[in-house]
Structures are given as structure tokens and as C-alpha cells.
Design a protein around this nucleic acid. Structure first.
Lengths: 280, 280
DNA sequence: TGGCTGCTGTAACGTATATTTCAGATCGGC
DNA sequence: GCCGATCTGAAATATACGTTACAGCAGCCA
């Protein structure tokens, strides 16, 4: 039986994390990270996976209150068996003094709402558009969402050519407008406290014949008026600002869909890049 | 890897029950009865629980097609881990022609796993650290996670002073090391396909006395060796790359926690900034 | 009843593992 | 900048384990 009062091993790990030495902590984190597989291995393999030695594992286990590594594994197995019997439907408990759990729950609700409400054909159309090598792509975001634009640019550059980042000061954006026309797709990120600069840029680009793709929040940025495609994500969380986790998920799902559409050509490009990167 | 074609161990047990000798059958039934606890024990204890000897257990395992008892246990553990990882896969609908729904489901599982496994005091300690105006903060990420670093920098700059971005080429990072010492906190983002440049930077910064905060994936970047604080997020999704939605959620939750800790001072700072921005 | 076949546990073996010891390395404090 | 305390892994040790060989035993047929 457990030598501690009913606390699960994972809970004990988190609670006693402070008492542990640096390498012991590393081992504990490793165990928490892929719970409980690591703990079922031998101490040596567990240590190797965590990047520490077997004795460090044993010291960590001892500090948690187990009399031996075997006793620890017995408890771990018992806990697993107990969990298996109960239906897994139990949701996450929300503790009033656990801000992380609350935040996570809100973010999860956002992700779910985003995925449920997003028009499938719109999503598919955008993916097809971004996978089409005949178009040049341009990415730009707002005050905080510009980081998301960065993220998407970095990924798409890997799987296709003609991916460009609109950067610098808003005044400098207009310079890049010169080359934008019918063969260009402009992907814009604009969420609440919508940016006037972005709107201006979008309107000018649209006037020149570019295809505007807008990624925005559920209340829709005014840019949606000039956008050919609109992808709304849910962003509300209990915080001063909104959460862009749903937005990021949407972007990542898009990237995956583009990879899918690029097919063999995309894979070859990936492999070529790997070859370049692996050369010293 | 399983030596049989995808069949679960329990399925194999039931299928081959006929081929087994009486005592072997008893052992197999015992294993099915309290699956998988019995199989995780030693062969001797397993045998004792089933009322047979250890060699009988081994013969039974061999007849199931496993090369050794150890191989059997490894498969058992892998099966367990796989079931644990996605507790909802069996209950939820699989979306064959809706990639977005599948992606969202995986991302949600990541967010939940991230929130559940993250040590609370580690989270709190990092939030307190980032809210402490006596420290200077430096942010840096890897190939794709640098965008997350950008995102966090942009937010924290609003709510506190002395927030810096480590930018440019890896060689240029080292210049910024000159000013880094005991009063500096270096926040690094490093996920799979870990960056050697980042690791080098982290080691040097740590050697100079800086506090390293690492945000990484569940397999822990090697930087965790020199990091004072480690925050692991789950990142696996059905895509060529990992998903950083959990990572972003973690960052956003951190930001919210820092805002909380900054309290009145932070609010005043926010209002001052609003005043500046609203002036035309 | 005798001999054959297949099943099963005991006992011995070698290996792998947990555990302990100890010396080098590292960090923090005066 | 030196010294003490603490942490950590390599090596040694003891223990436990999986594995194998072998003999007893039961069931079965002639």
C-alpha cells in the first residue's frame, strides 16, 4: 500500500519537487512528463532517459518516502490498476486556487468552440490556396498576433516557395504593396482591439487584386469586409488579454493540411532541407 | 514493438487460450482477470498469484510469441502507455474526412496533459520570478518556438520593465551574454530536434550565474540540466511537426499569473500605456 | 501392469538489477 | 578566493530475477 496518506504518486512528485536536488528534480520531471512509463522501467533505463545516473533515481525515490525502488514500482502499478478500473470520463477538477487549471479549461473550451464553429469548406479552401505554388504568400499580424504570423511563415517556408513576411514599421509595409497583385495571397491576423494599420494595409492590398485571408476572433475584425476568406477562432479566457491558443491550433491545422496537399513534392522539399541542415 | 500484427495482448491471450496446457491456461486467465497488474509483476509472483510456478509462466509467454519475459513486459507497458496517452480515442468519434476536428482533438489532449502534469509550485515559482522587477528578463527560442518567445516578450514588456529579446544570429547572441549575470533570468524555449546553439547559450548564461527558465516538451530538452526551473508541455499531434498550442497556453497562463502578481503596480502601468497609445 | 508421452515444479545457473560506497566535482558562504 | 557542505556518477557488492536443465508425476494406451 501507499506509504503516504492517499496522495497519488504524481501529486507527491509535484509537492516534493522543491525538496529535490537539481538532478533529482530532473528525474522527477521526466517521470511526470511521461507518466508512468518511465517509472516502470529499470532504474538504470529510467536514469538514462532522464539524463542522470541510476543512484540519483534511487535517491529521488527514497526522498519521496519509498523504502526501495521495488516498493515504488509496486505502488505505481497499484495506482495504475486502480485507475484502469474507474471509467476515464472524469474531467479535470477545478481547484479554486489553481489558476493554471482554470486557464487550461478555458483554453480547451476555446479550442473546441473554434473547431466546431469553423466552416469546413472555408478551412479547406484556404488550405488549398496556401498549397498552390502559383500564388505568392504574404504574412502579417497585429500587435501580439504578429508572433503567430512569424510562426506560420517559418513553417510554410519549409514546405513551399514564395513565402514572404511583411515586416518592419507600418509605414514600411506599404513598400511591399508595390509588388502585390492578382497572384498574391495576403494572410492577415487581426484580433480584438483591431489594428487600423492592418486594416489600411488590407484595403490597399485588396484594391490591387490580392486575395485576402483573414484569421480573426469570433467577433470578426473589420478586415473581414475586404477578405476573400475568413477563419474565426475563439479567444476569450479569464485574463487581461485574450488567449491565442485556439488561433495557433487553427494555424497548425492549416499547416498540416497544406503539407497534406503538397504531397510528394512537399515531402521531397522537406527531405532536401533536412539534407542541407544535416551537412555541417 | 509487438511481434504480432497489431493485436492487443489481451486479444492474443483469448485467441491462443486453446493452445495452452491446463496450468498455462490458468496463468493466462489470471492475467486476463486482473489485467495488467499480474503481468507487471515478476514471473515468480505472477506464478504465485495464479497458483503455478514461474517456468509455467515463461512457457505460456513464449507460446504467445514473445522472445522473453522482458519483451512481454515491455509490450505490456507500451500498450498501457498508449491507452493512457489518449484516454478518449476509443470513446470519441474518429473523423476520417475532417482533419481539423482530429487536429483539435489532439491539441485538446495536449493542453489537458500539459495542465495536469505541470508541477504547480514550479509554475508559481516561475511566475513570481518573472514578476520580480529586480531581475532583468531575456527571452530566446528555437527554430519555430522563437515566435512564442516573441509573443511572450511582447506581453511582458507591457506589464514590467527590463524585458529583453535575444535576437539575431546565434553568433550575435553571445554579445548579449556580456551583460548577463546573477540578476538576470533567461527564459528559453526548446522542443524536440533540440537546438545546439540554444544549449550552448544556456550553458554559458548559467555559468555566468543567470537563472535559466526552460520551457520544453515532455521529453525535456538537454538544457534542463542547467535550468533552475523547467516547465514541460505536451506537444505530440498527428502532423509532420509537433503542436505548440499547449506551449502557448502555458505561456499565456504564465503571463496572466504575472499580471496577477504585479497587482496595483501592473495595472497602473497598463493604464499609462493605454494613455500613451490613445493619444494621436 | 508396464512403458510411453507430455505436463509441471524443483533446483541450479548466469545475468541483470538494485543498492552501497566513495572520491571527484560543484556550489555557496564567509 | 578559499573552504566547507552538498551533490553526483563510477565502481563494487549483494540481491533478485529470468532462464534452463532435469527429474518426478500423471494420464493414457496396449
Amino acid at each position: 500500500m501507499v506509504s503516504d496518506s492517499g496522495a497519488s504518486i504524481a501529486e507527491r512528485l509535484r509537492r516534493d519537487l522543491g525538496r529535490l536536488t537539481p538532478n533529482e528534480k530532473r528525474a522527477a520531471q521526466r517521470l511526470l512528463a511521461d507518466f508512468p512509463m518511465a517509472g516502470l522501467d529499470t532504474a538504470a533505463r529510467f536514469g538514462e532517459a532522464a539524463g542522470v545516473s541510476a543512484p540519483t533515481i534511487l535517491r529521488m525515490i527514497a526522498k519521496l518516502g519509498f523504502s526501495s525502488y521495488g516498493a515504488f514500482q509496486d505502488d505505481l502499478k497499484a495506482e495504475l490498476a486502480a485507475q484502469r478500473e474507474t471509467p476515464l470520463t472524469k474531467g479535470m477538477k477545478v481547484h479554486p486556487d489553481d489558476p493554471l487549471a482554470g486557464f487550461a479549461q478555458a483554453a480547451i473550451a476555446n479550442l473546441r468552440a473554434t473547431a466546431e464553429n469553423l466552416p469546413r469548406n472555408e478551412f479547406a479552401a484556404v488550405a488549398t490556396l496556401l498549397a498552390d505554388p502559383r500564388y505568392r504568400l504574404h504574412f502579417l499580424g497585429g500587435r501580439f498576433t504578429d508572433a503567430i504570423a512569424d510562426y506560420m511563415t517559418a513553417h510554410l517556408r519549409v514546405i513551399r516557395p514564395d513565402v514572404r513576411r511583411v515586416g518592419g514599421q507600418p509605414a514600411a509595409w506599404l513598400d511591399q504593396l508595390l509588388d502585390i497583385g492578382r497572384r498574391d495571397v495576403v494572410v492577415l491576423f487581426d484580433i480584438r482591439r483591431y489594428s487600423d494599420d492592418l486594416r489600411d494595409f488590407a484595403e490597399r492590398a485588396a484594391a490591387q487584386g490580392a486575395i485576402i485571408v483573414l484569421v480573426t476572433d469570433q467577433w470578426l475584425s473589420p478586415i473581414s469586409k475586404v477578405a476573400r476568406r475568413v477563419l474565426p477562432a475563439h479567444v476569450a479566457v479569464p485574463s487581461v488579454w485574450d488567449s491565442n491558443a485556439g488561433l495557433l491550433m487553427l494555424v497548425e491545422a492549416l499547416i498540416a493540411a497544406v503539407v497534406e496537399r503538397r504531397g510528394e513534392e512537399g515531402r521531397r522539399r522537406l527531405e532536401a532541407l533536412e539534407a542541407i541542415r544535416s551537412r555541417p
